[in-house]
Amino acid sequence: MSGVVVVGVDGAPSSLAAVAEAAREARWRGAGLRVVHAFLWPAMHVPMGPSPLGPKEGGLRNMVQRLIAEAVERARTVAPDVDVTHAVVTGEPLTVLTAESRAAELVVVGSRGMGGFVGLLIGSTAVHLAAHGRCPVLVVREEPHADGPVVLGVDGSVAGEKAVDFAFAEAARREVPLVALHAWTTWNAPMQEPQDASVPYANPPGVLAEEERRLLSEALAGRQERYPGVVVEQKTVRGGAREALIEASRSAQLVVVGARGRGGLTGLLLGSVSQALLHHAQCPVAVVRGTGERA
């Protein structure tokens, strides 16, 4: 066994879906699974035991033990050959899971926790963890499509290279095709030198599209040799990256993106495309931080 996959649980339906996905990830990786619950109440000096007037099985501590037992049972049902451990850690969820991410291969969370506000599509813990985690973060809203491809959002940035590596490895583990999708517009495409010097910025039709196809091929270079069993479809789309990736998520079992792309503003820890996918994708989303991005 090498490494560990960490899954955060709080009893919400999406956290149980996260447990199932985390168990599958641990099995594919030959890793252990660590089920973690961030228990905030002890730090607030709230009584943990049952009320003197209530049943013996009541109280916050018993509730947490039942929650953990349910999550562990779910994991063992999905992946009975995976070594499953569990921990109840005092602290608030983002702090606890960020600390757990330092030693994990992957952290998996549900899209919304028990504390989520009605109407929100995704909880603040998932968004903040994707921005601050020290390893890739997988956010699960519901059970993924069993037969869909892995979809990779490619922008050609240096920060996105780790996302490319992660997506190829995921496609290989799952034994499914990889759709590498690059969306571009005339506003985010790199400016090309004009071929007609008499007309500033003028280029024949199709030049920008060809350059964007080349950018996509270069971003994937070398990975096919390392993962010869992965069937890759390279797809360039003229349009917004958010819209294209959300649409692709409808038939995917996983979407992989970097935390920030080439259009990211300095100081932002999570780019607008990543945030949009966390809120609106129709399948689990993995956010992979690039080399040198501060946590």
Rank of each mutant, 00 (worst) to 15 (best):
R141G: 10
E247I: 00
L268V: 13
L178D: 04
V109W: 14
L270F: 03
G271I: 01
E293M: 12
V207D: 04
A221S: 15
T77A: 13
R213W: 01
G32Y: 10
G222S: 09
A79D: 04
A286Y: 11
G156A: 07
E92G: 02
W41A: 15
E175A: 11
S15I: 12
T266Q: 09
R260P: 00
R213H: 15
S157C: 09
L33V: 14
V107T: 07
A69R: 13
H279I: 00
A79R: 02
E73Q: 15
L215N: 01
L208G: 02
R260K: 04
A17L: 06
A219T: 06
S111T: 15
G261V: 09
L138E: 00
T85M: 01
G267H: 14
P205A: 07
R24E: 09
L245V: 03
L277G: 04
T98Y: 10
A252S: 02
G119K: 10
P144N: 02
F166S: 07
R289G: 14
A18V: 09
Q234A: 11
V72E: 14
D147H: 09
A31F: 07
E161S: 11
S124R: 11
L208C: 06
A202L: 15
E218V: 11
P204F: 14
G3K: 12
L220S: 00
V231I: 02
P52C: 12
V287M: 00
V107S: 08
S249Q: 03
E143R: 13
L265I: 13
E175S: 12
E233P: 05
E105H: 05
L40H: 09
C135N: 05
V257I: 13
V109G: 06
Q282M: 13
E57I: 08
L120P: 05
R66V: 10
R213G: 11
L67Y: 07
V36G: 12
H132P: 01
V287Q: 03
P149M: 06
L121F: 04
A126V: 03
G261N: 12
P136W: 05
S274L: 04
L16I: 03
E92D: 07
R294P: 14
